[in-house]
Design a protein around this nucleic acid. Structure first.
Lengths: 213, 213
DNA sequence: AAAATTTTGTGAAAGGAGTCACATAATTGA
DNA sequence: TCAATTATGTGACTCCTTTCACAAAATTTT
């Protein structure tokens, strides 16, 4: 297959496929067809095949795909064949919830640091869960700690008013990936990546669908 | 303008516009051009005009859009000119964080009930915040309480293993909108709407962008 | 061993979404 | 009052995404 730019939408679906395949592997299934995977992920079978074809020929005609191999290939494509080290900035309710969010661990995302403006206030709150406790550090130490602990991704869970200045600190600290939970638009220089997780925007979407049907 | 189906993407952007316009209104701005709104929301100005044109002619040529009127129009289109009553199912770390999530209130989303399998274990944990405390009820009462409190949207924050059976209960209770935080695919009958919020999927996306640049 | 069956990989067609460019309308200034 | 300016609304174009449909390859059946 000729080289083509991989669509954003394909990348999003790959991570859905990955999750489905994990469940299948868990369930002991060895082989899966594009039709089966498609129905489990609620997409068109041709879509599945086309998505996979961007990266190579993983299937066997007349048979399907080997679950284990396909999963490994997808993870490699997505850059999930390594552990990603993350920090949480802003240890309020949401921040502490994320500190003990079990699904991150399962998926090779590891929180290795937590920051707040007031480390005193919140200390001890997050500690007891999940084996090794995460100590809460003052935000001023981010640059130093980012280097030391090889942090590549930060989750911003501060109030919206602080989000941009936190983002600036992250940029300065060389943390290239940001998952922004603070409901406000933040901007970063070229080379840095921000993904927003705005609960209310998703709710707006839901509200629209509900009120227009 | 002729009738057209409104693209999903347009709906998503409308809620971005809505948030930007709120900030502008707060800042005392009376009039805004498509170019200004576009730059604030990081989209193309023609895109803004086209998105708005789906619903009517809100602007004045040579002038722009009245912030207040436009905001009201967008909110009406999105179905946000009412209060949406919600329940949270599964009061673990994430569930409790959402119970006291301040941005919901600002945006006319109100949590009016909280459910868990074990209401004893978690009681009191969520109470003190934000004025009126939310009492945690046993999940078995969902059908009764949904009717009584006119619940239209449920947030699923249970472990993934329980998500589908919770969804079944919600369907039975006539709750048509579901925001699913449990990292597993759930299915509901025609007429019901599920929106997924999978943190790890978004992280996967981020990881891909980071590792391929 | 040949025919029937299954299921992939992909070119081509269809469908959606985003951008451009300009006619149109309102305002401002001389 | 008329020209210059500003900024909308939208047809046409381009680009991206999805779906269709079928040849190619592997397996199973007879």
């Amino acid at each position: 297959m000729k080289y083509q730019k991989i669509p954003e939408a394909t990348i999003r679906r790959l991570s859905r496929y990955s999750r489905c395949l994990e469940e299948m592997e868990q369930g002991g299934e060895k082989v899966v067809s594009s039709a089966q995977l498609a129905s489990k992920c609620m997409v068109n079978p041709a879509q599945v095949r086309k998505d996979l074809a961007y990266f190579g020929e993983f299937g066997i005609r007349g048979v399907g795909y080997y679950v284990k191999d396909l999963l490994a290939s997808i993870k490699k494509v997505l850059g999930l064949n390594k552990e990603w080290r993350m920090a949480v900035i802003g240890i309020g309710n949401l921040g502490s919830a994320l500190l003990s969010y079990k699904d991150f661990l399962k998926q090779n995302y590891k929180i290795v640091a937590a920051f707040d403006i007031d480390p005193q206030k919140v200390i001890g709150r997050v500690s007891e869960k999940l084996g090794k406790p995460v100590e809460i550090l003052h935000i001023s130490r981010i640059k130093e700690v980012a280097k030391e602990r090889k942090i590549e991704i930060a989750l911003i869970t501060t109030p919206p008013s602080e989000a941009q200045s936190v983002a600036n600190l992250l940029v300065e600290a060389g943390i290239r990936g940001i998952l922004n939970f603070a409901p406000t638009q933040i901007t970063v220089p070229e080379g840095f990546v921000v993904k927003d997780v705005f609960f209310t925007n998703i709710l707006d979407n839901l509200a629209y669908l509900l009120s227009s049907s």
